[in-house]
Amino acid sequence: MTTIENKELEESWVKQDWVYIKTALILAFFTAIEVFTYFESVHKAPEWLLVTTLSFLMVVKFFLVAGVFMHLKDDNSVFTKMMTMGMCIAWPVYFIMAFALGFLPDWNVIIKVLFLFLPPGVAGFWLGFSFKGGDGGHH
């Protein structure tokens, strides 16, 4: 390997490390927001708003770790789609159980339905449109 190639390789490694460091800083920032909601003044906010915000941050953090640290963004997109499909199923299943067992506040039924099915619905639409159809022929 030539000196120039070595230098380029070294630069790409440094660049990659910086991507990881920046991701960790973003994750730390989101975690700080999450912990901030624990303070009493914020904790008095409407429960549906708190749960929705925390759930959103949770999903974003989940995808950041999976996408960058577990390099899902560099892998074949079918893996991202498989993970999203799993999340679409896990979200309503988990939260229906949480509502049934009384782990979450007893909200208005419309908010409950929106909370349960809107996020997986949006993700489901994205999945549906992201699959590229063939020419309709059988191979």
Binding site: Y38, H43, E47, M58, F103
Partner: peptide, 13 residues
């Protein structure tokens, strides 16, 4: 842990 932390520790009960 990201999921457990949010659901067990942060969600209002």
């Amino acid at each position: 842990w990201i999921v457990i932390f949010t659901i067990v520790y942060l969600f209002p009960q």
